[in-house]
């Protein structure tokens, strides 16, 4: 590895210039020391120094809590008064068993699936539709782009306040629907609340995904479109055979990001319903807050967190397989 990298660095620009003529006696030793340092630390040791603060932060606020969380999930951990030393015995899979046996946990994970079924197709189709339009439109392009992005830059706490205003029992949406208004109403309806949250999240994040798709569309070579046009392909045919394959990496990324975001849903159910009705909008993240911090069982919450991350990872891998192989 070292020799390989050395050979590589010697073949690069200034490396050759320095190593080709044998250096004079005077500057030979510092050069050698520098060489040795570079052999150990790489061509630019400065890089280590520049990465150090970031890496330190990753360790403190990421790796240590990560390890702590895993440790917690396998031990009997509870809050104590500061300074009091109590044993936290190893309990194996007890916390996990408690989590799996808990019907409310299973329901919370099921709710995420309902969310995904609504959110994923809606996000991909609408974002691609708007991005395709945005890519081709001539007038008002900036206005459209900005409009779609505004929900994304606005705080959930603020936008959720309006959604509550619009969707509660005598809100304007039910007034508009008249007799078609659902009963029980949106926020109290256990079949509608999770789809409503999924629609809200789609609305909130769509602008971000539109921008991603737009960048992907602009990376599709114009020549391919021209060539397909010359071959007599219509607009729909060109969209299917040139645009869709061209943006497949972006689609894959959008699906991946949506899945990761799904695991984090907390604010929406917390503010809209508190997890109700009957746990129909409970999510694992909200459950972790309730169990870990409100009820003082951080070990159980940590176990839920590990299961959640595992589920998100498996789903991400499956989605990558599906979105990248389809051809």
């Amino acid at each position: 590895m070292t020799t390989l990298r050395d050979a590589e660095s010697r073949s690069k620009g200034w490396g050759t210039a320095r190593s080709a003529p044998p250096p004079g006696r005077g500057d030979r030793r510092p050069t050698q020391r520098r060489r040795r340092l570079q052999r150990i630390l790489g061509e630019h040791p400065l890089g280590l120094l520049l990465s150090a603060p970031y890496t330190a932060f990753v360790v403190i606020v990421f790796l240590v809590p990560f390890g702590f969380g895993v440790w917690m999930a396998f031990h009997d951990f509870f809050f104590t008064a500061p300074g009091v030393a109590v044993p936290h015995p190893f309990v194996g899979l007890d916390n996990f068993r408690q989590v799996v046996d808990d019907a409310s946990v299973r329901q919370a994970f099921g709710n995420l699936l309902v969310f995904l079924v609504v959110n994923l197709p809606l996000t991909v189709v609408l974002a691609l539709l708007l991005a395709t339009g945005l890519d081709a439109v001539v007038h008002w392009k900036g206005f459209f782009r900005v409009s779609y992005y505004i929900p994304y830059v606005t705080a959930s706490v603020a936008t959720l306040a309006v959604w509550i205003f619009m969707f509660n029992g005598n809100g304007v949406v039910n007034r508009l629907l008249g007799d078609l208004a659902p009963d029980p109403t949106w926020l109290a309806n256990q079949h509608l609340i999770m789809p409503l949250i999924a629609v809200y999240v789609t609305w909130k994040n769509l602008g971000f995904y539109v921008l991603l798709f737009l960048a992907g569309l602009q990376a599709v070579p114009q020549e391919l479109h021209e060539a397909a046009k010359v071959d007599g392909a219509g607009a729909w045919r060109r969209f299917r055979t040139v645009t869709l394959p061209g943006v497949r990496p972006v689609t894959s990324l959008v699906v991946l990001l949506s899945i990761i975001m799904t695991g984090q849903i907390f604010t929406e159910p917390y503010l809209l319903t508190g997890g109700g009705p009957n746990g129909a909008s409970m999510t694992p993240a909200l459950l972790m807050y309730q169990k870990g911090i409100q009820q003082g069982k951080p070990d159980v919450a940590a176990a839920i967190g590990m299961i959640l991350v595992l589920a998100v990872m498996i789903l991400s891998l499956v989605s990558r397989r599906l979105t990248e192989r389809r051809s």
Partner: peptide, 18 residues
């Protein structure tokens, strides 16, 4: 990339405790 990929929720409880 790891920081990017792992959701904050996994760290929520231990970070809170810390």
């Amino acid at each position: 990339l790891l920081v990017q990929a792992i959701p904050f929720q996994l760290l929520m409880v231990p970070l809170y405790v810390m």
